[in-house]
Design a protein around this nucleic acid. Structure first.
Lengths: 235, 235
DNA sequence: CAGTGGTCTAGACCACCGA
DNA sequence: CGGTGGTCTAGACCACTGG
């Protein structure tokens, strides 16, 4: 039960209902700040805040000197967050555990070195683990880490903490890019995840940057039957 | 080349660099609005705007009466946008075409009726098409539409416009939820997409609401080798 | 209680757009 | 040129937190 709407929220609600109900169509002009000031009897700063927030929500577009218009198509978009798998599992009230398959220092092949911003043959850390939710495998994690970004990475006890957690706390994140795709797991990963090699999987490939260094390159594979992303959009 | 940063941008930059460089760690206190006012010699409203924007970007958390702190983990998150496939293809400078496989009016089965908020046996529109990018199949779209939300849906020429476009222009979007998963296509869809039945696919199941009505229920299947989502995150 | 953030005002100056 | 949005100020009142 909403008891009290702030002035800027009232302005937002006023405009939103006119857009979502179809009264104002994409491309139509939205009243100017001056007009809304008068209509609501509030100051311009307050109107301005309402409109700025509508811009970041993708409902309207503004051009200085020209005016405010209803955005062309309401984007179906939402914040997609990629989080530490351990947090995610525990937030569901379930038990998280890992099976550590590899902890090693290797020499980077040329393509890998390029992706990490290193010279071919440089030392890189390599870990492979399987994450379990209540004992059931849900993620296969294959990760390379740049020693310059996280020198003590291999000292972590990966049965207690995750690679992602170590990196997030030691090497503050400045950039990341990811790709989500569907794939088949391959024999080895299928075996570790206890699925058939013919079962479709979701794969996320992620590259993170911390300051001057590329910190990490990871490929996370999820069984298609046990994992999916869900999102919500609200006007 | 940035010549001039606004005051609120300077405050944001000041705080961001301290977070991304690791000087301020997650959980640490950020200076109060009063302190930043004094430090930068600007008004509180300006400081407030900077901090509010950092909240929406997920860099800090604020609690009224308590203070501002560095957010626990920088969420690797980004705006994931699901758009009309035709726009997406044409934005890449490619040619979009559709193959229409079904345009029909059917009686809703009980589970379908429930999802659309209708009575079992009610009339629903049903379309199936395949979207092509430069002649190559990239999406299989199987869609049910609520006649109450878009009465003239079937009048559309789906060779020229897409179902999504018709709906977005006629039935303004108010809510949507979606799920992204990996799956195998099944025989019929595999045949239509010109892929093997054993090839992994990305599937999006989407439910859109327009005002009082559930507007549409769609399942979009993409060949895993020809489609992926990519995202970027920047501190 | 003092300190914090949340909101709001009534002005102001400027950059930009379109006629 | 007038109207628009983009930014900023120096106050104000309030609600909430914590000791």
């Amino acid at each position: 039960m909403v008891v009290q709407l702030f002035a800027y929220e009232q302005v937002k609600a006023f405009i939103k209902t006119r857009i979502t109900s179809g009264v104002w169509k994409p491309g139509d002009a939205v009243p100017s700040e001056t007009a809304l000031m008068a209509q609501f009897g509030i100051s311009r700063m307050t109107v301005n805040r309402a409109l700025r927030e509508l811009v970041t929500e993708g409902m309207v577009t503004r051009i200085q000197g020209s005016g405010t218009r209803v955005a062309e198509l309401h984007r179906i978009s939402s914040r997609l967050t990629i989080r530490d798998i351990k947090d995610e599992v525990e937030e569901r009230g379930h038990l998280h555990a890992s099976r550590v398959l590899l902890v090693a220092t290797e020499k980077a092949t040329l393509p890998l070195a390029k992706m990490l911003g290193l010279r071919s043959g440089s030392k890189v850390f390599h870990t492979i683990l399987v994450h379990l939710e209540n004992g059931i495998p849900i993620q296969h994690e294959d990760r390379y880490v740049n020693p310059l970004a996280a020198p003590d990475f291999l000292q972590t006890d990966f049965n207690r903490s995750t690679p992602a957690h170590h990196l997030l706390t030691r090497a503050p994140l400045t950039d990341a890019s990811y790709q989500i795709e569907a794939c088949l797991p391959g024999k080895e990963i299928a075996r570790q995840l206890h699925i058939k090699a013919s079962e479709a999987c979701l794969a996320i490939t992620r590259r993170t940057v911390s300051g001057a260094h590329v910190a990490s390159l990871a490929r996370l594979v999820y069984p298609g039957t046990r994992y999916s992303f869900a999102g919500q959009f609200q006007a």
